[in-house]
Amino acid sequence: MLKSADAGLAANKQLVFDMWRSIVNAGRVELADEMLQEGYIQHSPVLPTGRAAFKRIFSAVPRSTIPDLVSPPLVAMVAEGDRVVMALRDTLTDPTGEQYTSTHFNMFRIEDGRLAEHWHSLADSPGADVLPPEQGGPQPVTGIVGTGQADLLASEDPELAVRKRLAYVALRDLFVAGGEGQARDYLTKGYGEHDPNGFTGREQFGQGSLQDVIGAPLVAVVAEGNLVVLVTGRVEQHPFDAMRTYTTTRFDMFRIESGRIAEHWSGSVRPGQAPFAVGSAK
């Protein structure tokens, strides 16, 4: 998953992979000085921005031997341009006590060989002690609304451009508008759904309560090989201040096969359950 035909993309993947296993998993915060930009921008709704703040947070992780692999288990890494998306498999327990899996996503922007910006799929609301953006708190998630979104579908590789367009149109027409009647046009017969609120199989499409992203700004579209990740932003009401809002990020990853969508992953959780714990979503 770390390999790429482009040496620069492979290096960016390796940076993300090494940061996660050494700092997030093993608490080696001293390595942040060489892996993160000093002005590291944080878009998580619950974490402060800046490299110094990052080091303070992860200093709570017990120091241990750096593992060979990341935890939770790696599902995919997708790199394009200066972005890397890392998808991890999380095992969760719903309100009834049943275990199920979902996907935890992180997207990083790389600048001059260091991590410069971070978004992830944690949708938890900020606590009363989380600072506002202007005081070093989480920075707002921003993106493109309207016809300008087409600019994010461009690629020097014509095959990637086609796959981006397919994923974008499917997200718009099927997952947002609920056009399940068009499923045969977009999905393979054996379509696999990894959203815990969806159903596997093209004939079952539209019966699940997939989350709505109508009107959401498009933050990024990252494609590599047969995988395309669409990243959108949301605005939510702040739980402790009626005059404020906060932003979160949604990820939808698609695997393309023979011109149709064969699989879909998102960071959704089952209804009635709190999102991923902060400790597993850094």
Results as ranks from 00 to 15, higher is better:
Leu2Ala: 05
Ala11Gly: 12
Leu15His: 09
Val16Ile: 10
Phe17Trp: 15
Asp18Phe: 04
Asp18Pro: 03
Met19Thr: 08
Met19Phe: 15
Arg21Ser: 04
Arg21Gln: 06
Val24Phe: 15
Asn25Cys: 13
Val29Gly: 01
Leu31Gln: 12
Leu31Trp: 11
Glu34Asn: 13
Glu34Cys: 07
Met35Ala: 11
His43Cys: 06
Gly50His: 06
Arg51Leu: 09
Ala52Ile: 08
Ala53Asn: 10
Phe54Tyr: 14
Ala60His: 09
Ala60Leu: 07
Val61His: 03
Arg63Cys: 03
Thr65Pro: 01
Pro72His: 06
Pro73Val: 02
Arg83Ile: 03
Val84Leu: 07
Val85Gln: 02
Met86Val: 11
Asp90Lys: 14
Pro95Thr: 08
Thr96Lys: 14
Gln99Ser: 15
Tyr100Leu: 10
Tyr100His: 06
Thr101Glu: 15
Ser102Leu: 05
Asn106Ile: 10
Met107Ile: 06
Ile110Asp: 00
Ile110Phe: 07
Glu111Cys: 12
Asp112Trp: 08
Trp119Cys: 11
His120Thr: 15
Ser121Met: 14
Leu122Glu: 09
Asp124Thr: 14
Leu131Asp: 13
Pro133Tyr: 08
Glu134His: 13
Glu134Ser: 11
Gln135Lys: 15
Pro140Glu: 03
Ala150Glu: 11
Leu153Met: 11
Ala154Phe: 05
Ser155Asn: 08
Arg163Pro: 00
Lys164Ile: 07
Leu171Ile: 02
Leu174Lys: 05
Gly181Gln: 09
Gly190Gln: 10
Arg202Ser: 02
Gln204Val: 00
Gly206Ile: 09
Gly208Tyr: 05
Gly208Met: 04
Gly208Asp: 00
Gln211Ile: 05
Leu227Met: 08
Leu230Arg: 02
Leu230Glu: 02
Pro239Arg: 10
Met243Asp: 13
Met243Asn: 12
Met253Glu: 06
Arg255Leu: 08
Glu263Ser: 06
Gly267Thr: 07
Ser268Ala: 15
